[in-house]
Design a protein around this nucleic acid. Structure first.
Lengths: 187, 187
DNA sequence: AAAGACATGTAAGCCGTTACATGATTAA
DNA sequence: TTAATCATGTAACGGCTTACATGTCTTT
């Protein structure tokens, strides 16, 4: 079988457009600022490159979800500041109430662990160590963000960042224990 | 700036090919069986559809990474059983020692939480409840897999599944606490 | 009667990344 | 002098999903 959708409400992936629409609820943004927000506010669950952001903004303007204000600058390209329209707000609503996309995430590190037997103990230990360091740094970053912004976060944003922090703590713990075990075998 | 790679070792994403190559180290597989393995062994960090698997197998055969054995059947399409070649083994090695892809994962649920203020308390509570139920079910699934297969898992596979289990436990806890808080405000 | 396992494939289209293209200003 | 910040865009190409195309056999 495997067939016959016909009328099922189809699940779509979150796209850059959805997130940009959400972001523009705060205030108008330029493409450059959107990239900055992706990296500094959303990096733990979203990212997109300029190669996505600029064409997406163009598409959104054509669809009437946003309007563009062009601001000339000295020795710089014209700055384009985009604002949300009512159409855009409506579109975002539609995203928010659409069926939630099932979480299926692709993780290079977990793939390598799964096939880690073909890697040799030394390389495996190095892999886990590297990831442990990365996870610790990442955890510190999230905790920094938390202490810095927790007073300005909505209740649901608190949940979001605490999911990041707590699941990362758990990960660090597993990695530490696993590493000790791997090293114990080597002796 | 943002430019000039020139000679940096470029990071590539894990592809279905990498995972198929890893899987075929165990034994020969058909495309259909590979899909099954993706869903039942690897679902918590990888998935791919038939629309990816079959064309990928064709490409891999052309590249000499695998060989095909065709097995005729009654009232069924010819079954193609694929085996790893030395070239394929070599290619997989290259993946294993290539630079680890940085984790950037896109999570619909976290996006919705971040912009959850535009959703209204009731809808937000429903969203969190749904996700909590899903997370609990998923955790149970992982724990089932763990008790079932832990004696047959390599040390690194143990680490992989325990990362899944422990970070999911942490997530469930955050979700429970967050939900209680959201409901407390409603009263 | 329906659902699920078994079994393979193609075509259209979306969404995304990297690399290319261009350059001034300011701080370390 | 190197790197970072500011600022916008296009073109080539890759990988993946969904829908289409086509069934039989077995279990509930």
């Amino acid at each position: 079988m495997e067939h016959l959708p016909i009328f099922s409400e189809v699940v779509r992936r979150v796209t850059s457009m959805d997130v940009i629409l959400g972001l523009l609820h705060q205030r108008p943004y330029t493409g450059y600022e959107i990239k900055h927000a992706f990296q500094h506010q959303f990096s733990y669950f979203f990212d997109a490159s300029f190669g996505t952001i600029y064409p997406t903004l163009g598409k959104m303007e054509k669809l009437g979800y946003i309007t563009k204000e062009s601001i000339p600058q000295d020795n710089r390209p014209v700055k384009h500041l985009y604002s949300l329209t009512d159409e855009g707000r409506k579109q975002f609503r539609e995203y928010l109430v659409s069926p939630l996309e099932p979480e299926s995430f692709r993780c290079d590190f977990l793939v390598r662990l799964t096939f880690g037997e073909h890697l040799g103990t030394d390389a495996l230990i190095r892999l886990v160590e590297e990831n442990l360091n990365g996870s610790r740094a990442y955890l510190a970053e999230l905790e920094g963000k938390w202490t810095k912004f927790c007073d300005r976060m909505s209740p649901s944003q608190e949940i979001a960042i605490r999911i990041g922090i707590e699941s990362n703590k758990a990960r660090v713990k597993v990695l530490e224990e696993g590493l000790a075990k791997l090293k114990g075998k080597g002796l």
